[in-house]
Structure formats: structure tokens, C-alpha cells
Amino acid sequence: MWNWFHKLASPPHFYRLAGIFSPWLLWSSLILIAIGTYGGLVLAPADYQQGEGFRIIYVHVPSSYLSTMIYALMAITSGIGLIWRIKLAHAVAASAAPIGASFTVVSLLTGMLWGKPMWGTYWEWDPRLTSELILLFIYFGYMSLRASFEDIGKADRAGGLLAVVGVVNLPIIHYSVIWWSSLHQGPSIKKLDAPSISGDMLWPLLLLIAASTLFFGAILLYRARAEVLDREHNSRWVQDLLGERPGAG
């Protein structure tokens, strides 16, 4: 087990392994996304309350789920990197951040588009929208902290510490926002959750959540491979790989 772990942490091995896995992940995710989209947009019946508008759920829920899942992944890999001093783990965390931020943006935008027909407004200070927005700020903070260091080792450790501090704070922020809004007087927003969701609406959603996770995995591996190449560009194996001799370039 540990042997395998250490082997995985070696950049050349990871580079090779990621190169094998990423096309499989990408193609299977694209096929599943196609099936799920067809199921969601064509086969699923229109909602009796929300009409066709509910179909935005098939983009909104997977991206919201991924936006938090990716942050958790970032914090875990940063923790691994800080504790065992594995540079590869930091490289994975660094490559995950922009993807997570993108999914957060998609989740916010689809939430706003969904809010317009359902709530009658693009933006509502609803607890879930608000904490999603704060999550986006935290992603931006992480990325700009990394970008402000020239030394990549320093960027790794500072960013890693921020990711770990942030993951302790995320639940606090999330529940604060919920309690904060429950302290508000005034009309409460009608929640969108239907009490139950029928089977032919549900399976495309579950399929799309799984497919988006695979898609994230594929993009993460592509990005991490590029990141590893960039970080190791002076090492022997990268130069062998690219067919360059030291001193030739």
C-alpha cells in the first residue's frame, strides 16, 4: 500500500499513469454526458409546477456539487502535501483550483438563470447562493495567493495552508449564512426542492453528476500532467521525454 503510494507520488510515474487514464475518463464522461443530457432534456417530462424551466437542474446540481467537492479535494491534497511534503499533491491541488472556480461560476450563473423564472429575480440573498458566492471568493483568494509567490515551493505551502484553513471555515460560513438568513424577518423564499422527484427525472440527474465528476477527473489529470511537466522541466526525465538534451535549448 505505502509502496504504491510512494510510487504514485513520483512525478514520472504519475505522468505516465495520468496519460493512460485521462483519455478513458474523458471519453466515458463525454458519452455519459451525452446520454444524460438526452435523458434530461428530451426523455424527462416537464415539471408540473416549473414547466420546462426545471431542466436547468441538470447543469446546476452537478456543478454545485463539484464546486464544493473540488474544494474538499484541494484541501485534502494540500494537507497531504503539507504533512508528507509530497510536491505532486500540491501540483494536483494547484491544478484543481481553476476548475473548481469555473464550476462555481457555472453553478452561480445557472442558479441566477433559474432564479429569474422561479423567484422573479436573478439574484436573491438565499443562503445557498450566498455561500456559493463566498466559495468563489475563497477560490479567488487561493489562486491569487499562489500567483503572488515566485517560488513555487512557497506558493505550494502558503496556498496549502490557506486551503486547509479555508476548509475549516467553509462549514462555519455555510451554517452562518443559513442562520443569518433565518434571523431575517420578512417573507421567506419559497424553496425549489420538490418533495420527491420522479424516476425519469432522477436518473439523468444522477448520471450527469457521475459524468461531470468523471469529466472533472479527466480535466484534472490533463492539467496536472501539464503542471508536473512545467515544474520538472529541468529534470532528466522531462528532457528525455521531450527529446531535448541539456544545454541544447
Partner: peptide, 26 residues
């Protein structure tokens, strides 16, 4: 975290403001 960074003012705000939000709200 930003002690080693030049011109860290904006960065510091970006890092700590989201974390300070619960205190502000309550």
C-alpha cells in the same frame, strides 16, 4: 501568509474578508 509578498494590501483583503464574514453577519 502575505508577509513575504510585495504589495499585499489587496491580496490580504481577498484572503481574509470571506473568512471574516460570519463575524460581521452575527
Amino acid at each position: 501568509l502575505t508577509a513575504g509578498v510585495r504589495q499585499s494590501g489587496g491580496l490580504l483583503a481577498l484572503l481574509v474578508l470571506p473568512l471574516m464574514l460570519p463575524v460581521l453577519m452575527f
